[in-house]
């Protein structure tokens, strides 16, 4: 590259701002909580993600499943963030949110859809019991896998499902997060 070409490549000054864009088909926010950073997303007024997954992976999943017009627009998630914060400080026991399990498979939807009815605040259930509730009594392991893929962590309370032995077994946000949530519910 000649000196003139180098000068051309530095022709304009910086200082511009990122663009301002309309409300996206999928809006998301990264929300920092005591149990870790959650990626929250909504589409068409419904919550589609509350996930411990990383930003790149989750936004790509949302782009493929819903629309590629995915933007970081925290304002669209204000109500979700407020309700989560209230829950995480013991001031809320249920969520008043419309959800859409668009990121879940049909079997995951079967497991997750009615989970709030199969569990209650402050009480745990087991993978086997959930399997029984959905008339798949032998599918405890598959239920565990479906719960592990819950795209709406905390909002759909998969943390309330534990092993038959009482062991916490696993959680997308890590066992410390699961323990925190169960302790929170047992105290409140």
């Amino acid at each position: 590259m000649t000196d003139l070409e180098r000068r051309l490549s530095r022709l304009t000054p910086g200082g511009a701002r990122p663009p301002v864009l309309p409300t996206a088909d999928v809006s998301y926010a990264l929300h920092h909580t005591p149990v870790g950073t959650l990626l929250l997303a909504s589409a068409g007024g419904r919550v589609v993600a509350s996930s411990f997954g990383d930003e790149e992976t989750m936004t790509n999943r949302l782009a493929q499943a819903i629309s590629p017009r995915v933007l970081r627009q925290p304002g669209a998630l204000d109500d979700v963030r407020r309700q989560l914060d209230e829950y995480l400080t013991g001031q809320r026991k249920t969520f008043e949110l419309s959800v859409d399990l668009v990121l879940a498979t049909p079997f995951q939807r079967l497991v997750l859809n009615d989970l709030p009815d199969h569990t209650s605040y402050g009480r745990t259930t087991t993978y086997g019991q959930v399997a029984g509730e959905i008339d798949r009594p032998k599918a405890a392991r598959a239920v565990g896998t479906a719960l592990g893929a819950n795209p709406l962590c905390i909002v759909i309370p998969c943390h309330r499902v534990i092993g038959a032995s009482g062991a916490l077994t696993g959680y997308a946000g890590g066992l410390d997060a699961k323990r925190f949530l169960l302790n929170l519910e047992s105290k409140s």
């Binding site: 022709l11 304009t12 000054p13 910086g14 511009a16 701002r17 990122p18 663009p19 864009l21 996206a24 088909d25 999928v26 998301y28 790149e56 936004t59 790509n60 949302l62 782009a63 493929q64 499943a65 819903i66 629309s67 590629p68 017009r69 995915v70 933007l71 970081r72």
Partner: peptide, 29 residues
Amino acid sequence: MVSEKVKLPPFQALVDDHWRDVARLARAL
């Protein structure tokens, strides 16, 4: 809404990766 064949990245990735280049070019033009 999404084409079966084209896997487009989330639009936010385009903004994050390229907004400075677009701004510089627009100012230069």
